[in-house]
C-alpha cells in the first residue's frame, strides 16, 4: 500500500509539471485516465471559475460553469477530439466562452451536473472568502482617498472617469491609488487570514 501511494505521489508530481500537450497525448485513443482528468480539473477549474466570476458575475453561476466546461473538456479528451494538444488551454477557454455565452443568452443557470458523472471536479479547491470584519479592519487602515476609490470602483461600480471627476483627480491618478490600495488591502487581509 505504501509503495502504491508513493508511486501515485510520484506520478502526480510528474503530471503537475507536464505540459498541456503531454496531458492530452497521454489520454489519446479513448483511454479513461482518472489521474490526467484530475490534473486537468486541478489545473483549469480555478481558471474557469475566475472566468465565470468575471463574465457571469455570480458565484453560483461560476461554479456551474466549472462543472459544464469540465464535462465538455473531459468528454473531448476521452474521445480524442483535441486537435491541437499544444493549444489545449485555448480549447478550454473557447469552451468556456461558448458555454458562458449560452448561459447568458438563455438567462438561466446551468443544470447541476450529476456528481457521479464527474466526481473529480470536487478535487478543485476553492479559495476561502475573507470575512467582513477583517475587510473592515483592513479598510480602516487605508487613507480616506484610497478607501473612497475602492468603494466607488467595486461597490458603486463607477467608471474611472466618474471617480476622477468626483474626487477631482486625474483618471491616471485614480488608477494608481486603486492599484496601491488593492495591494495594501490584499497584504492586510492575507496577513490576517494567515
Amino acid at each position: 500500500m505504501a509503495v502504491a501511494f508513493a508511486c501515485y505521489r510520484q506520478l502526480s508530481m510528474q503530471l503537475e509539471t507536464a505540459t498541456h500537450a503531454e496531458l492530452v497525448q497521454r489520454v489519446a485513443g479513448g483511454v479513461i485516465d482518472r489521474e490526467v482528468e484530475a490534473e486537468v480539473c486541478r489545473r483549469f477549474a480555478p481558471r474557469i471559475r475566475l472566468y465565470g466570476l468575471k463574465h457571469l458575475r455570480d458565484e453560483e453561476a461560476a461554479k456551474d460553469l466549472v462543472q459544464r466546461v469540465l464535462v465538455v473538456v473531459i468528454e473531448a479528451l476521452r474521445a480524442g477530439r483535441i486537435e491541437e494538444p499544444q493549444h489545449f488551454d485555448r480549447f478550454v477557454l473557447g469552451t468556456c466562452r461558448n458555454t458562458a455565452h449560452r448561459v447568458r443568452a438563455a438567462e438561466h443557470r446551468a443544470q447541476p451536473t450529476d456528481p457521479a458523472d464527474l466526481e473529480i471536479v470536487d478535487d478543485a479547491k476553492l479559495p476561502e472568502r475573507f470575512g467582513h470584519d477583517a475587510l473592515l479592519a483592513c479598510m480602516y487602515k487605508l487613507d480616506m482617498r484610497a478607501k473612497t476609490v475602492l468603494q466607488l470602483s467595486f461597490y458603486r461600480e463607477r467608471s474611472t472617469d466618474e471617480i476622477a471627476a468626483a474626487l477631482e483627480m486625474t483618471a491616471g491618478n485614480v488608477r494608481v491609488v486603486r492599484h496601491r490600495a488593492m495591494l495594501a488591502l490584499r497584504d492586510c487581509l492575507e496577513r490576517s487570514a494567515a
Binding site: R43, F44, P46, R47, L50, Y51, L53, K54, E59, D89, R90, V92, L93, C96, R97, P127, R129, F130, H132, L135, L150, Q151, S153, F154, Y155, M182, L185, R186, L189, E190
Partner: peptide
Amino acid sequence: DEHVFACETCAHESARLEQIAHALR
C-alpha cells in the same frame, strides 16, 4: 483571459485580486 488560461502563475495572481474585489463588492 487568454494569458490566464495558459499561465498558472498569473491565474493565481488574478485569483488573489478577485478575492479582494469580491470582498469589496
